[in-house]
Design a protein around this nucleic acid. Structure first.
Lengths: 340, 340
DNA sequence: TGCAATAATGTAACCGGTTACTGTAACTAG
DNA sequence: CTAGTTACAGTAACCGGTTACATTATTGCA
């Protein structure tokens, strides 16, 4: 073998300090008593040699990666900033590393980029892993926490998400009751995304509760991305030749930006002609023109709590409640037609 | 040893397929000819056994981690979404994993979370690593690409960033020449951040070129975060008891949000009383109220190019030009006072 | 005082892959 | 027909740590 990593190894440290490798290892991991004398010597030698333990070797020997994975569909959304923030803070606090991977249905032919082979546990915000995948990983006792996704019925995988349906009902109900809107368009998120489904469900309930028939033609498929939102809505308007709706639920705030663009370019006034409402209350939403009526969701808290639960799982501590549902709140601004 | 990972190993695969482990390894890595017959058999066995190579073992044996690191100061900015997007896409394309770590000056007592011990190379968007750190890593031939940061004089570390100074000059010059602003406030970014320094430099040049004396009292220290921006500016206004400036360069678009909030709460009209300009042209900027005059920066391209350069370094291919400076562009909207 | 418990350390097997080296059979060129 | 390649496969050393087990010195306590 000619592989000769230039890095300092534990044996060199041991030799220079006149102790065995086992002692050095114990010092590194503080998992066994070391005499004060030796400890000081090791500390000196290690800084002198600039010794840094080789991560892969530790992982292999200890069967722990000290890495947490985050599986996403895409990163195309400002929504991920607070989420990542929450997660990263916790991961860092525990001295772990965070690996981020996107994994979509279209890549299902290759193995998931993260899993038991390279992480101690993962946070799943993705439908790239099927329910079957989840079940099989769970059966192997692989720690997982789902984010904005409900676990399959049969298994108890902790899940952290926000209340979507009730609040979506409320925001649509607001459009109908307060602003008299009746032709309310829905711009869906990704079809197999759960938030998206719950929001649609709330939308439908609100229509029904107000005696407005559901109209399939008023539903567009988006993906929580501003560009898609723009394209889809613009196409719709151009095809129709007119604006045949008086309100639109954009699915999320990011998509709202695309929606606002499309409406503006088609000379449609918001909120005079069309009410616009979003979801998430991202940092910029209060400052859009007009300020966006939306739903505030505690996204950073979702990230934080999900990560904390994952670390609890490492200690075999299961959360008493399988599903953590964080509260959401209606944020009324101008884009729905209110005068605030 | 009682460690008994439940995962399938290469030896089990080899045995079941009736070949040696070396052959299996060669099949996995496709780095040596394998007979069609054996290849098919292995493929079958591997799917049947659900074999996934153990990442740490591969890393240890091959001395390659197949991991790229991204070192950041914080994640508190929507700016990171396009950056991450660009980086992640490239990293994924190469079949690598991406680990993200924040590392700040206040943690300098602990070793950097990512480095030669756990990555094949890193992208540095952080001043957590000092110039000395960079030099010493570079001396060890550790692949690195700097993002929005110039390498120390003595070493040739590739660096990808955007043009800051000239465009900052232009945007300030615009405020002065077109809108007659003379008391232009500067909200700095982090003090040791390079973009921030170049932008201040452009700001000062523009003042000088127009015969306006630099006034230290019109400079506030922010950190490219909306909350800080709000707090700092609000404090300033409250302390002064009046709005003593007629324009403000917010440093970046995220901070612009905080600035707009503070101005609004202090009954200050934008752009009538105060012109506001930002930097980055984040997705929401065109939809702020008023639409934000800013500078568009190709942030996703920065991420993409930086990552590509890092992979080139893995192949010992050094970019012909050490410094990649991507062009920026003035985006005139309403917040400066223009009528677009 | 005697014996068990504890502290402190060493030895070496082991984690699960990669690859240098070796060997055989088939193929190619002269 | 023979030397030189090339294709394909196996053996085993090695990557750099961790830790079970063994050993010796020290301490605690009846």
């Amino acid at each position: 073998m000619t592989i000769k990593s230039d890095s300092v190894t534990i044996r060199e440290v041991a030799q220079k300090a006149g102790v065995s490798v086992a002692t050095v290892s114990r010092y590194i991991n503080r998992n066994a008593p070391i005499s004060k004398d030796v400890a000081e010597r090791l500390k000196l030698v290690m800084t002198e040699l600039k010794y840094v333990p080789h991560a892969a070797a530790r992982q292999l020997a200890s069967q722990k990666t000290r890495v947490v994975g985050l599986l996403l569909n895409t990163l195309h959304n400002d929504f991920f900033v607070p989420l990542l923030n929450g997660i990263e803070a916790v991961v860092r606090k525990h001295g772990y590393n965070l690996v981020i991977a996107t994994y979509l249905l279209d890549r299902r032919d290759m193995p998931a980029p993260i899993g038991p082979h390279n992480t101690d546990g993962i946070l799943v915000f993705s439908d790239g892993l099927s329910d079957d995948d989840l079940i099989s990983l769970h059966a192997r006792n692989f720690p997982m926490v789902l984010v904005h996704r409900t676990p399959p019925d049969s298994v108890k995988i902790p899940s952290v998400t926000v209340e979507n349906k009730k609040i979506s009902f409320e925001i649509i109900d607001h459009l109908i009751k307060v602003h008299g809107r009746t032709r309310i368009m829905l711009l869906r998120g990704p079809l197999n995304q759960e938030d998206s489904q719950w929001r649609e469900s709330g939308y439908r309930s609100a229509l029904e509760a107000n005696g407005i028939p559901f109209d399939e033609r008023l539903v567009l498929n988006g993906d929580f991305e501003r560009n898609t939102a723009y394209k889809v809505l613009n196409e719709f308007i151009v095809t129709e030749g007119q604006v045949s709706f008086d309100a639109i639920f954009t699915g999320d705030d990011d998509a709202a930006i695309g929606v606002l663009t499309a409406l503006r370019e088609n000379d449609c006034r918001v909120p005079e002609d069309v009410s616009v409402v979003g979801f998430d209350d991202l940092g910029f939403s209060a400052f859009l023109n007009p300020p966006l009526t939306t739903v505030s969701a505690p996204t950073e808290a979702v990230g934080r709590i999900a990560a904390e639960q994952l670390f609890s799982l490492f200690d075999k501590q299961y959360p008493e409640d399988n599903l953590t549902l964080l509260p959401t709140e209606l944020i009324i601004r101008r884009s729905c037609g209110c005068n605030v």
